[in-house]
């Protein structure tokens, strides 16, 4: 057999072997693409009292997009996803005209503050299009840097108490947050004072001035963190409800480059004019 055919055959066999190996093993490229979970992985133990790092939904970048509402309670119309609205809460909910979910209206008729680039605030930043986030820790703070609109928020860990929610307190889009370690691997933060103009999620779930949001992070192992969000708002909901239930996040390499995801009012206005308004059969100013 001519030598070149032998070499070609060996090369083909090699490629075949490599492709089999590749299909059975790791298909990720750390640092270049999202570093996601893979079978039979055995991450090391969780570090003590440490949330720092770049985190991405472990089941893939789209796992926490939540177009149809908070991931644990999407607005599907099913009884199990019915929220415990108070009459006041239901009224506020119906006043919101979302462009998503069973109550959707054409986007040109929606009054969702987010697409027009109003500050989406806390907790919607984690219940809307939650992708990569970097967590920084200092001795006094946990700082979270979100990919969407490159916004940061601060959770104080210096022992200060939450402010009293009264008529004097200045509303903030990101609220007032304090947190503490309840054990070496569980960090719990509480937030109050969120501006009532913000929605909780894409389908227009509202919150009142009395809302309190609990976020719980459990550091499961060296590579994973779980995020849980609970809404406690007795004015609008008759009991607390879980909006995000142990969402698994995976640690990305320190060198991971978080790409931009920006909101531009002029781009949205152009979209409204060229697509959304003709689709809705209207040709007026963007309603709010």
């Amino acid at each position: 057999m001519p030598r070149r055919f032998v070499l070609a055959g060996l090369t083909a066999a090699g490629i075949l072997c490599l492709s089999v190996v590749a299909s059975n093993q790791v298909t990720r490229v750390p640092g270049a693409e999202y570093d996601s979970d893979f079978p039979n992985e055995k991450p090391g133990p969780a570090p003590r009292r440490d949330l720092s790092g770049i985190w991405e939904p472990a089941r893939g970048p789209g796992d926490a997009i939540q177009a149809n509402g908070a991931k644990n309670m999407p607005d599907t119309g099913r009884p199990e996803h019915q929220l415990p609205f108070t009459p006041e809460g239901l009224k506020a909910n119906l006043a919101n005209k979302p462009a998503w979910g069973p109550r959707l209206v054409p986007s040109a008729l929606s009054n969702d503050p987010q697409p027009t680039c109003e500050p989406q605030g806390w907790p919607r930043i984690i219940l809307h299009n939650y992708r990569t986030a970097q967590i920084l820790q200092t001795p006094k703070q946990v700082l979270i840097l979100y990919q969407f609109n490159r916004k940061w928020r601060n959770i104080w860990t210096d022992g200060r108490a939450l402010p009293v929610v009264d008529d004097v307190l200045e509303p903030r889009f990101w609220g007032y947050s304090t947190g503490r370690w309840v054990d070496d691997y569980t960090f719990v933060a509480q937030s109050v004072g969120m501006d009532e103009r913000t929605w909780l999620d894409n389908v227009g779930r509202p919150h009142s001035w009395e809302a309190r949001v609990e976020e719980r992070y459990f550091r499961r192992d060296a590579k994973h963190l779980e995020a849980t969000i609970t809404i406690d708002d007795p004015t609008f909901y008759s009991k607390p409800w879980v909006a995000l239930d142990r969402l698994p996040l995976r640690l990305q390499p320190d060198s991971f480059d978080i790409r931009e995801m920006e909101c531009s009012p002029s781009e949205f206005a152009r979209y409204q004019k060229e697509f959304a308004e003709p689709a809705a059969g209207v040709a007026s100013e963007t309603p709010r």
Binding site: E118, E170, R172
Partner: peptide, 10 residues
């Protein structure tokens, strides 16, 4: 405590 300083199109 850094107060919020935001931009709101509305």
């Amino acid at each position: 405590d850094v107060m919020e300083y935001y931009c709101s199109p509305y």
